[in-house]
Amino acid sequence: MITLDNRGIPPTSECPEGFTLQDMVGDVAGLVEHLGIGPCRVVGTSLGAFITQELALSRPDLVRRAVLIATRGRTDMLRAAITRAEIELHDAGVELPARYAAVVRALKSLSPRTLDDGEAMADWLDLFELSPAAGPGQRAQMDLSTLDHRLGAYRGIRVPCQVIAFADDLITPAHLAREVADAIPGAEYELIEGCGHYGYLEDPATVNKVMVEFLTGAVAR
Protein backbone atom coordinates (compact mmCIF):
# COMPACT_ATOMS: atom_id res chain seq x y z
CA MET A 1 0.00 0.00 0.00
CA ILE A 2 1.25 3.48 -0.91
CA THR A 3 0.02 6.65 0.79
CA LEU A 4 0.81 10.26 0.01
CA ASP A 5 0.70 13.62 1.75
CA ASN A 6 -1.42 15.95 -0.37
CA ARG A 7 -0.02 19.34 -1.24
CA GLY A 8 -0.89 21.87 1.42
CA ILE A 9 -0.03 19.54 4.30
CA PRO A 10 3.57 19.33 5.58
CA PRO A 11 5.98 17.69 4.86
CA THR A 12 4.61 18.27 1.35
CA SER A 13 4.83 21.89 0.19
CA GLU A 14 2.12 24.07 1.73
CA CYS A 15 1.66 26.03 -1.53
CA PRO A 16 0.25 29.10 0.29
CA GLU A 17 -0.39 30.81 -3.03
CA GLY A 18 -3.22 28.34 -3.53
CA PHE A 19 -4.00 25.43 -5.83
CA THR A 20 -6.91 23.70 -7.52
CA LEU A 21 -8.48 20.29 -7.27
CA GLN A 22 -7.06 19.49 -10.70
CA ASP A 23 -3.58 20.32 -9.37
CA MET A 24 -4.10 17.64 -6.73
CA VAL A 25 -5.39 15.18 -9.32
CA GLY A 26 -2.23 15.86 -11.32
CA ASP A 27 -0.13 15.15 -8.23
CA VAL A 28 -1.65 11.68 -7.82
CA ALA A 29 -1.40 10.94 -11.54
CA GLY A 30 2.24 12.01 -11.49
CA LEU A 31 2.98 9.76 -8.53
CA VAL A 32 1.33 6.73 -10.15
CA GLU A 33 3.28 7.34 -13.36
CA HIS A 34 6.54 7.96 -11.49
CA LEU A 35 6.19 4.66 -9.64
CA GLY A 36 5.04 2.83 -12.76
CA ILE A 37 2.14 1.13 -10.97
CA GLY A 38 -0.81 2.11 -13.14
CA PRO A 39 -3.47 1.03 -13.54
CA CYS A 40 -3.83 0.58 -9.79
CA ARG A 41 -6.47 0.52 -7.08
CA VAL A 42 -7.06 4.00 -5.65
CA VAL A 43 -8.81 4.83 -2.37
CA GLY A 44 -9.68 8.33 -1.17
CA THR A 45 -11.75 9.77 1.66
CA SER A 46 -13.41 13.21 1.79
CA LEU A 47 -11.14 15.57 -0.20
CA GLY A 48 -9.17 12.49 -1.20
CA ALA A 49 -12.37 11.04 -2.64
CA PHE A 50 -12.94 14.21 -4.68
CA ILE A 51 -9.43 13.72 -6.09
CA THR A 52 -9.99 10.01 -6.74
CA GLN A 53 -13.25 10.45 -8.65
CA GLU A 54 -11.71 13.18 -10.82
CA LEU A 55 -8.69 10.95 -11.45
CA ALA A 56 -10.97 8.09 -12.49
CA LEU A 57 -12.71 10.44 -14.90
CA SER A 58 -9.67 12.12 -16.46
CA ARG A 59 -7.08 9.32 -16.28
CA PRO A 60 -8.87 5.97 -16.43
CA ASP A 61 -5.65 4.45 -17.75
CA LEU A 62 -4.17 4.85 -14.27
CA VAL A 63 -7.09 3.49 -12.22
CA ARG A 64 -8.05 -0.18 -12.02
CA ARG A 65 -10.70 0.29 -9.31
CA ALA A 66 -11.61 3.25 -7.12
CA VAL A 67 -13.10 3.52 -3.63
CA LEU A 68 -14.72 6.84 -2.74
CA ILE A 69 -15.25 7.24 1.00
CA ALA A 70 -17.39 10.06 2.44
CA THR A 71 -17.71 11.86 -0.87
CA ARG A 72 -20.12 14.09 -2.75
CA GLY A 73 -20.50 15.47 -6.26
CA ARG A 74 -21.88 18.92 -5.52
CA THR A 75 -22.06 21.53 -2.78
CA ASP A 76 -25.44 22.08 -1.14
CA MET A 77 -26.53 25.12 0.88
CA LEU A 78 -25.34 23.91 4.27
CA ARG A 79 -21.95 22.63 3.07
CA ALA A 80 -21.37 25.96 1.28
CA ALA A 81 -22.28 27.87 4.44
CA ILE A 82 -19.94 25.74 6.57
CA THR A 83 -17.06 26.34 4.16
CA ARG A 84 -17.65 30.11 4.05
CA ALA A 85 -17.86 30.27 7.85
CA GLU A 86 -14.61 28.33 8.30
CA ILE A 87 -12.82 30.51 5.76
CA GLU A 88 -14.07 33.71 7.43
CA LEU A 89 -13.01 32.45 10.85
CA HIS A 90 -9.54 31.54 9.60
CA ASP A 91 -9.06 34.79 7.69
CA ALA A 92 -10.13 36.84 10.71
CA GLY A 93 -7.09 35.50 12.52
CA VAL A 94 -9.16 34.10 15.37
CA GLU A 95 -7.35 31.34 17.25
CA LEU A 96 -9.83 29.16 19.09
CA PRO A 97 -8.77 27.53 22.38
CA ALA A 98 -7.45 24.07 21.55
CA ARG A 99 -10.00 22.27 23.71
CA TYR A 100 -12.90 24.19 22.21
CA ALA A 101 -11.69 23.44 18.67
CA ALA A 102 -11.38 19.76 19.64
CA VAL A 103 -14.97 19.63 20.88
CA VAL A 104 -16.31 21.28 17.72
CA ARG A 105 -14.33 18.86 15.56
CA ALA A 106 -15.70 15.91 17.51
CA LEU A 107 -19.30 17.09 17.12
CA LYS A 108 -18.81 17.51 13.36
CA SER A 109 -16.85 14.36 12.66
CA LEU A 110 -18.04 11.59 14.96
CA SER A 111 -21.25 9.63 15.35
CA PRO A 112 -23.63 9.90 18.33
CA ARG A 113 -22.54 6.36 19.25
CA THR A 114 -18.95 7.54 19.73
CA LEU A 115 -19.94 10.87 21.27
CA ASP A 116 -21.86 9.00 23.98
CA ASP A 117 -18.91 6.73 24.80
CA GLY A 118 -17.07 8.59 27.57
CA GLU A 119 -13.91 6.49 27.46
CA ALA A 120 -13.60 6.78 23.68
CA MET A 121 -14.32 10.51 23.75
CA ALA A 122 -11.51 11.17 26.20
CA ASP A 123 -9.08 9.70 23.67
CA TRP A 124 -10.65 11.48 20.70
CA LEU A 125 -10.59 14.89 22.40
CA ASP A 126 -6.95 14.44 23.43
CA LEU A 127 -6.07 13.50 19.85
CA PHE A 128 -7.93 16.46 18.35
CA GLU A 129 -6.43 18.85 20.88
CA LEU A 130 -2.92 17.79 19.88
CA SER A 131 -3.62 18.28 16.16
CA PRO A 132 -1.70 21.23 14.67
CA ALA A 133 -3.52 24.46 13.91
CA ALA A 134 -4.50 25.12 10.30
CA GLY A 135 -1.60 26.44 8.24
CA PRO A 136 -1.59 28.24 4.89
CA GLY A 137 -1.86 25.00 2.97
CA GLN A 138 -4.96 23.93 4.86
CA ARG A 139 -6.41 27.36 4.18
CA ALA A 140 -5.89 26.75 0.48
CA GLN A 141 -7.65 23.39 0.80
CA MET A 142 -10.69 25.09 2.35
CA ASP A 143 -11.47 26.73 -0.99
CA LEU A 144 -11.73 23.28 -2.58
CA SER A 145 -14.60 22.27 -0.28
CA THR A 146 -16.94 24.35 -2.43
CA LEU A 147 -17.07 21.61 -5.02
CA ASP A 148 -18.56 22.38 -8.42
CA HIS A 149 -21.62 20.40 -9.50
CA ARG A 150 -19.92 17.38 -11.08
CA LEU A 151 -22.60 14.69 -11.08
CA GLY A 152 -23.23 15.05 -14.80
CA ALA A 153 -19.53 14.67 -15.54
CA TYR A 154 -19.27 11.56 -13.37
CA ARG A 155 -21.63 9.73 -15.69
CA GLY A 156 -18.56 9.49 -17.90
CA ILE A 157 -16.54 7.45 -15.40
CA ARG A 158 -15.94 3.97 -16.76
CA VAL A 159 -13.67 2.35 -14.16
CA PRO A 160 -15.31 0.21 -11.43
CA CYS A 161 -16.12 2.37 -8.40
CA GLN A 162 -17.39 1.82 -4.89
CA VAL A 163 -18.91 4.62 -2.80
CA ILE A 164 -18.84 4.18 0.98
CA ALA A 165 -21.05 6.51 3.02
CA PHE A 166 -21.57 6.87 6.76
CA ALA A 167 -25.09 7.18 8.14
CA ASP A 168 -24.19 9.88 10.71
CA ASP A 169 -21.84 11.92 8.51
CA LEU A 170 -22.57 15.65 8.85
CA ILE A 171 -19.74 16.84 6.60
CA THR A 172 -20.50 14.68 3.56
CA PRO A 173 -23.94 13.25 4.32
CA ALA A 174 -24.98 9.89 2.96
CA HIS A 175 -27.59 11.25 0.54
CA LEU A 176 -24.91 13.30 -1.25
CA ALA A 177 -22.63 10.26 -1.47
CA ARG A 178 -25.54 8.26 -2.86
CA GLU A 179 -25.86 10.81 -5.67
CA VAL A 180 -22.27 10.07 -6.70
CA ALA A 181 -22.93 6.32 -6.74
CA ASP A 182 -26.07 6.86 -8.79
CA ALA A 183 -24.20 9.04 -11.29
CA ILE A 184 -21.28 6.67 -11.92
CA PRO A 185 -22.36 3.78 -14.18
CA GLY A 186 -22.32 0.49 -12.30
CA ALA A 187 -20.96 1.97 -9.07
CA GLU A 188 -21.49 0.02 -5.85
CA TYR A 189 -22.85 1.80 -2.78
CA GLU A 190 -22.28 0.85 0.83
CA LEU A 191 -23.94 2.66 3.76
CA ILE A 192 -22.29 1.99 7.11
CA GLU A 193 -24.42 2.66 10.17
CA GLY A 194 -23.29 4.17 13.45
CA CYS A 195 -20.46 6.22 11.95
CA GLY A 196 -19.74 9.86 11.27
CA HIS A 197 -17.28 11.48 8.86
CA TYR A 198 -14.42 9.57 10.47
CA GLY A 199 -16.24 6.27 10.05
CA TYR A 200 -13.13 4.55 8.73
CA LEU A 201 -11.63 5.15 12.19
CA GLU A 202 -14.82 4.56 14.20
CA ASP A 203 -15.52 1.19 12.56
CA PRO A 204 -12.41 0.18 10.61
CA ALA A 205 -13.29 -3.52 10.57
CA THR A 206 -16.52 -2.95 8.62
CA VAL A 207 -15.01 -0.36 6.30
CA ASN A 208 -12.00 -2.54 5.54
CA LYS A 209 -14.17 -5.60 4.92
CA VAL A 210 -16.42 -4.02 2.30
CA MET A 211 -13.51 -2.16 0.72
CA VAL A 212 -11.22 -5.19 0.43
CA GLU A 213 -14.06 -7.31 -0.99
CA PHE A 214 -14.59 -4.72 -3.71
CA LEU A 215 -10.92 -4.13 -4.46
CA THR A 216 -10.19 -7.84 -4.76
CA GLY A 217 -13.41 -8.65 -6.58
CA ALA A 218 -14.16 -11.22 -3.87
CA VAL A 219 -17.89 -10.55 -3.88
CA ALA A 220 -20.03 -10.21 -7.00
CA ARG A 221 -22.94 -7.81 -6.50
Rank of each mutant, 00 (worst) to 15 (best):
I2H: 12
I2T: 12
T3G: 14
L4P: 00
I9Y: 01
T12S: 15
S13C: 01
E14A: 11
E14Y: 00
C15S: 10
P16K: 10
P16M: 10
G18T: 04
G18E: 01
T20F: 04
L21N: 02
V25L: 07
D27P: 04
G30I: 01
E33K: 11
E33Q: 12
H34D: 08
H34T: 11
H34M: 08
I37P: 05
I37S: 08
G38I: 08
C40Y: 10
C40M: 12
C40F: 10
C40V: 15
C40N: 07
V42C: 05
G44H: 09
S46E: 04
G48L: 05
F50S: 11
I51Y: 06
Q53K: 14
E54G: 08
A56Q: 08
S58F: 06
R59P: 09
D61A: 13
L62S: 08
R64D: 15
R65Q: 13
R65K: 14
L68W: 04
A70I: 04
A70H: 11
R72Y: 04
R74H: 11
D76M: 06
L78D: 10
A81H: 12
I82K: 13
I82T: 12
R84C: 11
E86W: 07
I87L: 12
L89N: 11
A92L: 07
A92S: 15
G93R: 03
V94D: 05
L96M: 14
A98Y: 02
A98Q: 10
R99P: 08
R99G: 11
A102D: 11
V103H: 12
V104E: 15
R105V: 03
A106H: 05
L110N: 09
P112H: 04
R113K: 15
R113E: 15
T114C: 12
D116F: 02
E119I: 12
M121N: 07
M121L: 12
F128R: 02
F128M: 05
S131V: 07
S131C: 08
S131R: 15
P136D: 09
P136E: 10
Q138E: 14
A140Y: 03
Q141F: 00
L144Q: 02
L147M: 03
L151C: 01
L151T: 00
L151Y: 00
L151F: 00
G152T: 12
G156P: 02
P160N: 06
P160R: 02
Q162G: 05
Q162C: 12
V163L: 11
L170P: 05
I171K: 09
H175V: 06
H175K: 07
L176I: 03
L176G: 01
L176P: 01
A177Y: 03
A177H: 05
E179D: 15
A181E: 02
D182Q: 14
A183N: 03
A183E: 05
P185G: 10
A187L: 05
L191E: 13
L191H: 09
C195S: 13
G196S: 07
Y198N: 13
Y198H: 08
G199F: 01
E202L: 06
D203G: 06
P204I: 01
P204V: 00
T206V: 09
N208C: 08
N208R: 10
K209V: 00
V210C: 11
V210T: 13
M211R: 06
V212F: 07
E213I: 00
T216C: 07
A218C: 01
A218G: 02
A220Q: 14
